[in-house]
Write a protein that binds this DNA or RNA. Structure first.
Length: 544
RNA sequence: GCGCCCGUAGCUCAACUGGAUAGAGCAACGCCCUUCUAAGGCGUAGGUUACAGGUUCGACUCCUGUCGGGCGUACCA
């Protein structure tokens, strides 16, 4: 509908003989006041400056020049300082309702990103411990954005990037070794800053079962490290699967060393004069890109910092032919990605193709107090524990409810009592309730003719249809802005409008044709709820 | 110190990216189950959108400053 309105407005604007430059973008929005119609344009106000005329006069002229199809638009009004308000015709609403049913499980899909290949990198937690509630926001956000992009036509690959070398993993190996020796009854000094979690003991135990005492005398920590990595990764994969997340690939940072791209990256940076040696380390001249200080790429120990492989990794991704690469980062990485963008630009790639979604931290509230998590200190709540308590649906919903850009407060106690009052149930309940009604309708009626949708004239029915048909537009905006919470807000509105309809309009027991029309409407709503919940990765049960 | 993000109802958060009278959910209070699921609905109360300026037809949204919180500013990831 909006494209149609834009078209007719644009046509009417021809009367002013505006140049390309003078023609503002025609914005249409849904007024929050129903009295202001179904769509509203501020175009007259935008033009007031260039046309040097009163906005209401301009609006008059635009409206006078509008040619529209009465089957789509019922009325056009001028209101307030110069808004042009459109009211949709019911025939248009019935057509759209029919479209929902015709497209069923694909209603809401668009082709705006058709042909685009996107690589979405997320989670990317190193295998040093189980996924915690802190990782949850990243995981769920990434997966849901991927789903949104798929609904707008893109082909999305989900990738998990990790690094199994370096100091962290060394300490992990040492921690496992200490627990291993401990279990064998030998004296073992636990490494300073080691990983204290119970899961380390489980790994050690597995090693004892597998190798008995054979590893006790070796100084090599790699068997400990490798076992830890493999068991922890098994656990991570399982957690992700439970959350309805499936990765297409796991990318080991190590590959970048093996294929020489790390060396290549440094070489190129040097050649461009953007990398140099100082005090035994290799530095990246980030001051050239507006940073206050240069940053270290390779430490004097010879070990690269994470920035270097990060740059090489992004080059690698773009090299694989993706039109766009999206990263999901926590706020703590905010300072690093400008360096990555600078780096790949130097390497000859288009930084515009890299998009970073930064989400703010999750504050865990436990027993009414903020709770600081640390994987190392074993101060954490795992995603598995959370899902044991509230299930995967609530877990996903909780992380998606809020804008990525705000701090998310996660109250453990509140999440636990979620069975009673969690908002996700409101959506699932509406869906289940519709199916319950539809089951009864099927039992009692046998329809042979097509439904007469124009019997749907009640205010609640019209309202419900209007909300429902905004679905594709919502997906579009949620995908573009990478803000899944918009979809949740929309589904809440839809469920709420359905409940209004449910109270105002009975289905069972009415005259047969009306039963059919209303059941058809209800079916369409259930379809949209199911599609929306599907994008969120949440179940849409037919019974609760 | 500097950079990024945030500050909206008692609490947790929305507000279609500059639109018309700032909305939900919890919590509080008062109603509504012989009618398709009360995991629901209706109503009441709750606000100087942190504060002070500015930009314009119009500001929660943009610009400047102040205060408060988070994150970063590492030869840690």
């Amino acid at each position: 509908m909006k494209p149609y309105l834009r078209k007719i407005i644009s046509k009417s604007l021809n009367q002013f003989n505006l140049s390309q430059k003078e023609t503002p973008e025609i914005q249409l929005e849904k007024p929050n006041e129903p009295a202001h119609g179904d769509a509203s344009s501020n175009i007259a106000m935008k033009l007031a400056g260039t046309l040097r005329d009163n906005p209401r006069n301009i609006a008059q002229k635009i409206v006078a020049g509008l040619e529209y199809d009465a089957k789509k638009v019922a009325a056009v009004e001028i209101a307030g300082p110069g808004f042009i308000n459109f009211r949709y015709a019911n025939t248009y609403l019935y057509d759209e309702l029919a479209t929902v049913l015709a497209q069923h499980s694909s209603f809401g899909q668009t082709d705006s990103l058709q042909g685009q290949k996107i690589l979405l990198e997320f989670v990317s937690a190193n295998p040093t411990g189980p996924l915690t509630v802190g990782h949850g926001r990243n995981a769920v956000l990434g997966d849901t954005i991927a789903r949104l992009l798929e609904w707008t036509g893109a082909e999305v690959d989900r990738e998990y990037y990790f690094n199994n070398a370096g100091r962290q993993m060394r300490v992990l190996g040492q921690s496992v070794r200490a627990r291993y020796l401990e279990e064998l009854g030998e004296d073992a000094a636990f490494p300073e800053g080691g990983y204290e979690g119970e899961y380390i003991k489980d790994i050690a135990h597995a090693l004892v079962e597998e190798h008995d005492k054979d590893l006790a005398d070796t100084d090599d920590i790699s068997p400990f490290k490798e076992k830890a990595e493999s068991l922890i990764f098994d656990d991570i994969r399982q957690t992700l699967e439970r959350m309805n997340i499936e990765m297409n690939s796991y990318f080991n940072e190590h590959e970048l060393y093996e294929d020489g791209s790390i060396d290549e990256t440094v070489k190129t940076l040097r050649k461009k004069g953007l990398a140099y040696d100082k005090e035994g380390a290799t530095w990246f001249k980030t001051t050239e890109f507006g940073k206050e200080q240069d940053t270290v790429l390779i430490k004097s120990s010879g070990e690269p910092t994470y920035r270097l492989p990060d740059i090489a990794y992004h080059a690698n991704k773009l090299n694989r032919g993706y039109d766009q690469c999206i990263d999901i980062f926590g706020a703590d990485h905010i300072a690093t990605y400008p360096d990555v963008l600078s780096g790949i630009k130097v390497l000859g790639y288009d930084p515009e193709k890299v998009d970073v979604v930064v989400y703010q931290f999750v504050t865990i509230v436990k027993e009414g107090k903020p709770f600081k998590m640390s994987t190392r200190k074993a101060n954490f709540i795992t995603l598995d524990e959370l899902m044991d308590e509230v299930g995967a649906d609530v877990t996903r919903f909780f992380f998606l409810m809020r804008s990525p850009n705000t701090h998310l407060e996660f109250d453990i106690a509140q999440a636990k009592e979620a069975g009673e009052k969690n908002p996700v149930f409101y959506l699932q309940y509406a869906h289940a309730r519709i199916h319950s009604i539809l089951r009864k309708v099927e039992e009692e009626y046998d329809f042979t003719d097509d439904p007469l949708l124009d019997l749907l004239t009640h205010e609640s029915e019209i309202q419900l249809i209007k909300t429902m048909i905004r679905f594709p537009e919502m997906i579009q905006s949620a995908a573009e802005s990478r803000e899944p919470h918009r979809l949740i807000n929309f589904l809440n509105d839809l469920a709420s409008d359905f409940t209004g309809f449910y109270h105002d309009c009975r289905i069972l027991g009415e005259e047969k044709q009306l039963v059919q029309a209303r059941a058809t409407l209800a079916r369409a709503v259930a379809q949209v709820l199911a599609n929306g919940l599907g994008i969120l990765g949440i179940n849409a049960p037919e019974q609760m």
